[in-house]
Design a binder for these strands. Structure first.
Lengths: 192, 192
DNA sequence: CTACGATTGTGATGTTTGTCAATTTTATTG
DNA sequence: CAATAAAATTGACAAACATCACAATCGTAG
């Protein structure tokens, strides 16, 4: 059952009690997405967060008619335009299912209410924000410290599963390089 | 008086009560830094956070013997290697005073205690983390969306004061370009 | 004022990566 | 299985930026 997976995930964090979980229960809405369906559209303000039971999403923006990926989400991740949700400003991104997906939806309003009502949820929110920040720092550092080749090799090591589920041209744009450049890079590395 | 400035800042956020503030008071330690003095050294784990009453700091790392700036702090900012403090891992950065500075120091331990004791402080922590995350996202986007010239123009518009307090070669490395490139860029822009 | 160091600017040249156009390989669908 | 679409590769060329070497300017201690 979908809700169970969410609950199991929350329990595993050891941050909230069963009682805290129960608060959310009535506000959860299951939803499915077909591959290529949009979760967030550029220009819209994000009011919903999804916990992914199954499937995958990508976040991308369009510049000069070209799609650039900034983020991938998988099982047990929260799919959300965190930035747009936090600031309540129009999203600069699209979020698209790249596989058929099942998510549990809840609204930002409910989340904020949980933050207000429960110190535990507030802490949960802080830790989520801190974790998200650290991931984003890592990404900045990868751009500052490394060149395209090093970023590729690091990604290969850190998220090998990404390469099984996502085509290379999506990964290239995530790495901040052109798909042609990634292709040449891979040949160079393969040849030694 | 130094503490007053910190208190005024906290009040202005409207997130914590006078009582919440009072909790911190006994743990605050004023300290001065001379220009070029280090606040954080690469390899150390950050246990302290500083509220800046006066002065400026920069965060940089060294790669191939070259310093690269990632961040500047000024009055009413918290100077801290947030990443190292959160994860309690050795810092990858140096933080250096670039002007004589006065800060109010407090420890990460005290902050965590405040988080536990007070829902208000926990919320404060969440909002800080969220804000920091958003700033870091903006920086990532500036690298993905823009070239050196566009990053320069954006910085000029968003933080004009930076250019009055920080030499151009520091700004160049913050923008991710060489100082020569920035110089050429500025000439090109000046000429139209 | 003068001299020195710090900062900024300039020219010549090389490297890296992007762009465009085309082709090959792989996956998907009727 | 053939037809078609999607993904990956390749080569030729252009643009952006780095590097190195040196010159000009600015600010400040003596």
């Amino acid at each position: 059952m979908w809700y169970q997976q969410f609950k199991d995930y929350l329990r595993s964090t050891q941050l909230v009690t069963d009682e805290d979980c129960a608060f959310f229960e009535p506000y959860l809405k299951p939803k499915t997405y077909k591959a290529k369906e949009l979760f967030v559209k550029e220009g819209s303000i994000s009011h919903e967060i999804g916990f992914i039971n199954k499937g995958a999403f990508r976040t991308y923006y369009i510049i000069d008619g070209k799609e650039i990926n900034t983020c991938f989400f998988f099982e047990n991740d929260f799919v959300v335009d965190y930035d747009s949700m936090l600031a309540q400003t129009p999203s600069k991104y699209y979020i698209e299912a790249i596989e058929d997906a099942e998510v549990m939806l809840f609204t930002a309003t409910v989340l904020r209410e949980a933050y207000s009502k429960s110190h535990n949820w507030e802490r949960f929110g802080r830790l989520m924000a801190e974790q998200t920040y650290r991931m984003s720092t890592e990404r900045i550092e990868s751009f500052l410290f490394m060149n395209g080749e090093e970023r590729y090799l690091q990604l290969l090591e850190k998220q090998p599963t990404l390469f099984e589920r996502v085509p290379l041209y999506h990964i290239a744009s995530y790495l901040g390089i052109e798909r042609e450049t990634l292709s040449r890079l891979r040949r160079k590395i393969a040849q030694g």
